[in-house]
């Protein structure tokens, strides 16, 4: 349900939050009993989900490395959640102390926590907004005057687009975000999929999705479509752990363990 502008969503302490459940799976203590209960329930139903979440975070780190190596020094991280460990600004500013990061999340608690954590970091900003309202994200990001949309930037959508059901037209949302990014910009997406997954895993994932925020599993083709006409960099849209692994030992021989694809694309269009 749409809330009137300026009115934050209710803070319901009796309900688990996806951001805090995620934090728990990453070994953080930014969570409450209700979140841990749900996390354990999810882990019991889908034993590889915690590992998938960790793999997602590792994919993001490796993708960030690629962007940083290509000189990207400003990032828009949408669906950033609770900055547990290995955050985008930590990774970015370790490589380039002048790197700028704007975090966006829909969870008011995650936003409040991010603001407090980043209060002393002048090169970071936090926006409370919904991915389904990309115009608002972009206008608020511009208002912060941290990111220069005339220069290449990295748009990070790690494990968040699958929270947008088809009825909310994720393709249009992605198109809006891409249109705002200058040539040379990058788009990083990781997204849950039903492809190459055993049936019992899918059943369990659907079940688990019902208890938390609904997740829309999508095909590789659909996820590839989110990159639009941008150039998808090697090795393409692949299972996350196969995307430029640090070392062969990080990949598994027995096929994809994690039900999510990851990909990175670059805006190679010329100006005008």
């Amino acid at each position: 349900m749409q809330k009137p502008d300026g009115l934050p969503a209710e803070i319901d302490l009796s309900r688990p939050s996806a951001a805090r459940v995620y934090d728990y799976f990453l070994g953080g203590a930014h969570n409450f009993e209700i979140d841990r209960q749900l996390a354990e329930q999810i882990a019991a139903m889908t034993p590889n989900l915690p590992a998938t979440m960790r793999a997602g975070r590792e994919f993001l780190r490796r993708a960030m490395r690629t962007l940083l190596d290509d000189g990207i020094d400003q990032f828009l991280d949408i669906g950033s959640g609770i900055p547990t460990v290995g955050n985008v600004h930590e990774v970015a500013q370790a490589a380039n102390p002048k790197a700028r990061v704007v975090y966006v999340d829909i969870d008011p608690v995650a936003v409040a926590h991010s603001r407090e954590l980043l209060a002393d970091n002048a090169l970071t900003g936090v926006i409370h907004a919904d991915l389904r309202d990309p115009e608002r994200i972009l206008s608020e990001a511009r208002a912060l005057e941290l990111l220069d949309f005339d220069r290449p930037l990295g748009i990070l959508l790690a494990g968040v687009v699958h929270f947008v059901p088809d009825v909310d037209r994720p393709g249009d949302i992605l198109a809006t975000l891409r249109a705002a990014a200058a040539p040379g910009s990058y788009l990083v997406i990781s997204h849950s999929t039903f492809e190459d997954q055993p049936q019992e895993m899918l059943d369990a994932q659907r079940l688990s999705a019902r208890t938390a925020t609904e997740i829309t599993l999508r095909s590789r083709v659909e996820i590839t479509g989110f990159f639009g006409d941008w150039t998808i960099v090697e090795p393409g849209v692949v299972h996350m752990e196969l995307w430029r692994p640090d070392s062969p030992s990080e990949t598994t021989a027995d096929g994809p363990r994690f039900g999510a694809f990851g990909g990175v694309a670059r805006n190679d269009q010329t100006v005008g």
Binding site: P8, E10, I11, R20, G28, H30, P108, A112, E116
Partner: peptide, 17 residues
């Protein structure tokens, strides 16, 4: 530290709301 941080964030979010 983290428990205190998240609790404070929650009260902050609640106060804001």
């Amino acid at each position: 530290r983290q428990q205190e941080g998240i609790a404070r964030a929650m009260w902050q979010a609640r106060d804001d709301a």
